[in-house]
Design a protein around this nucleic acid. Structure first.
Lengths: 229, 229
DNA sequence: TAAAAGCGTTACGAAACTGTCGCAAAAGGG
DNA sequence: CCCTTTTGCGACAGTTTCGTAACGCTTTTA
């Protein structure tokens, strides 16, 4: 029903490796999409907008390094963390890998635990709420671990949907989210609900946020969507 | 020279598998001893007295199942948790595995994270003090060593399941645990138990905690799970 | 070996939450 | 200033989630 699991895109040409990665990532509760093809990867990124990309260095066709470079030079995708995998261990490669903009670099053979830790580490930057962190904005504190929300020390009562909605806003204060983006993120990619439903929940969130007084921190951007602050 | 890291004995004949296991277990801070031979395993158990044994089902010479049987029928070794690994997935095997006294059973291919979690899970059973001897929260004191719980000096009567449930909560007061996470930690990953069963035990735990008066310290987080405080 | 305690499932009522609708209010555009 | 588009929001009915009592079964205890 609801989606709060981050999506990982795995780009790896060797099937066995790909399976191990998918299996373990899924077991950790991530939503995994994988491909063995560089071109397809670039298309998938635009389509599914993953929260993080795990990218093999060596690929048939476009190399991983090239994919990374392209992603990092496009503003829409530059923010997505890229974790490079490589069979080589030379220092040169590590440097080159990070030069192209990869956010982290893991040398094969790697410990699965280590890889998971690094994936989580990157996610912590992009999806703080999904990794159980504390978010704060203008006196509003959202603690993902305890599921508690307070405004100016006073506890707020939010339903599950309002909670996820607020988490999304607080991960990037100021960012404007369209109704469709919110439906994707808060409700789930494959669920159909009328986009006006978002309005209603925004309204409910507003009411909850202002329950003890204070300004409405949510901004309506006519024709575009909503934003926090 | 005190040994603060639990020792794991890995019995697995395929070198690649053995290496993966050792690597990941060591990365997790366990002390690992491994062998590919069943006879040697039996000798090693007597020698090093591991805290837990990870045992492959199929071995040249003595089978894993036979090793398990022998260990479980000797009183000195019966208490050591045995985690069975198997490439087969038939129900028959699962049943037979648990019949011989294995404490848990993992089917290949397994998630490394899952395996680690199960190892930790078994260890917790044997060394409840591993995380800390005495937990306290708001007048509730749980002594892992004596298996006793008091609230405001008054002793509480908890069943085994409620005890484990409470110790999970007290490990991280405030943290919200989903029903699935609780099933994992308190029950065990392999057995199918309806997730609603958690509710019932939460209810029982609540009743026990409030037996001598006082507020209900457990918080229900709709759509997410439960938390202490 | 009988009694007691503990366990997991089910059923059902209560409460909370959800999505949709309809209309009023607000915002833009010309 | 009026007309169109977009948004706010109360109301409502349907659905989901939760708490708990009851029950049969297994394990432990005396």
């Amino acid at each position: 029903m609801a989606k709060d699991h981050p999506t990982v895109l795995v780009v790896e040409d060797e099937p066995a490796q790909r399976d191990v990665l998918s299996y373990n990532l899924e077991a950790e509760g991530f939503e995994v999409v994988s491909t063995d093809d560089g071109e397809e990867a670039l298309l998938l990124v635009a389509e599914i907008v993953p929260d993080i990309i795990v990218l093999d260095w060596m690929l048939p066709g476009i190399s991983g390094i090239e994919i990374c470079r392209r992603l990092k030079t496009r503003t829409e995708t530059a923010g997505i963390p890229v974790l490079m995998l490589s069979a080589r261990s030379e220092e040169v490669d590590r440097v080159r890998g990070l030069e192209t903009g990869a956010d982290d670099y893991v040398v094969k053979p790697y410990s699965v635990m280590e890889l998971m830790a690094r994936v989580r580490n990157q996610l912590r930057r992009v999806r703080p709420a999904a990794t159980g962190q504390r978010l704060e904005y203008e006196g509003i504190i959202l603690d993902a671990e305890t599921h508690r929300v307070t405004r100016d020390e006073k506890p707020l009562k939010l339903g599950p949907t309002e909670f996820r909605l607020l988490s999304t806003f607080m991960e990037k204060p100021g960012r404007v989210w369209s109704r469709e983006q919110l439906l994707d993120r808060v409700w789930g990619r494959d669920i159909y609900v009328d986009s006006r439903t978002v309005d209603v929940h925004i309204g409910r969130l507003r009411k909850a946020l202002c329950a003890h007084g204070g300004d409405d921190p949510l901004r309506t951007v006519r024709g575009a969507g909503y934003a926090l602050g």
